[in-house]
């Protein structure tokens, strides 16, 4: 799979996720921009801004014909904006201390749709089977999450592949990042994307 093919399949996956979320919530969502690029190892903790910034991250590993990890990072303010837009009536009825856990649950669902859509399209394009684990949600410094994922990927090269997506909302923008980390062993199955 070359880089262009990866870009196309990632974008198709995001478009599919957008459509699914729109149907589920009855709200019109627009996919603003998709940027896919390589990132050097040392820059990975900076993918979501300052490495000390707290993010909500959905994390899955995948196996099958290739192994790797997929993370979706939400800044708390973006997650809240997205939630307020998608299900405003639900959040209006909650007390402040109930919001974080429900926000986490909602973001797991959003991440599940986005992550599985991207993985499916990439797998289809590569003619392979990729099986994701159920997502878990982690709330911590973005750099700590991304750096840990790098360690677990066993990535020996200095480049990984990152897709950024932005959803346009009514009065503002909520942005989040999809981080796609195939294991080096995925190279033999064509999932190691090359430029």
């Amino acid at each position: 799979m070359n880089f262009l093919q990866f870009q196309e399949s990632a974008k198709q996956g995001l478009e599919s996720a957008r459509a699914t979320l729109s149907v589920f919530t009855g709200k019109e969502l627009r996919l603003d921009a998709v940027t896919t690029d390589y990132v050097e190892l040392s820059k990975v903790p900076l993918l979501s801004g300052s490495p000390e910034d707290v993010v909500l991250s959905s994390y899955v590993t995948f196996s099958g014909d290739a192994e790797g990890q997929l993370m979706i990072l939400f800044r708390p303010d973006s997650a809240q904006k997205l939630a307020d837009y998608l299900v405003p009536e639900l959040f209006r009825s909650l007390s402040p201390d109930e919001i974080p856990s429900l926000l986490d649950s909602l973001m797991v669902e959003v991440a599940n749709i986005v992550g599985s859509s991207v993985l499916n399209k990439v797998a289809d394009r590569g003619g392979m089977r990729l099986v994701p684990t159920p997502p878990v949600m982690v709330r911590d410094m973005s750099g700590a999450i991304l750096g840990s994922a790098m360690s677990y990927s066993g990535t020996v090269g200095n480049q990984v592949y990152v897709a950024y997506i932005k959803f346009s909302l009514g009065d503002g923008k909520a942005s989040f990042e999809v981080v796609f980390l195939p294991k080096p062993s995925a190279r033999k199955n064509g999932l190691w994307v090359t430029k």
Binding site: T133, V138, D140, I145, S148, S151
Partner: peptide
């Protein structure tokens, strides 16, 4: 940090 995830490589930390 990736608590709740049982990774094949174990606890790298």
């Amino acid at each position: 940090v990736l608590r709740g995830v049982d990774l094949p490589g174990g606890d790298i930390g």
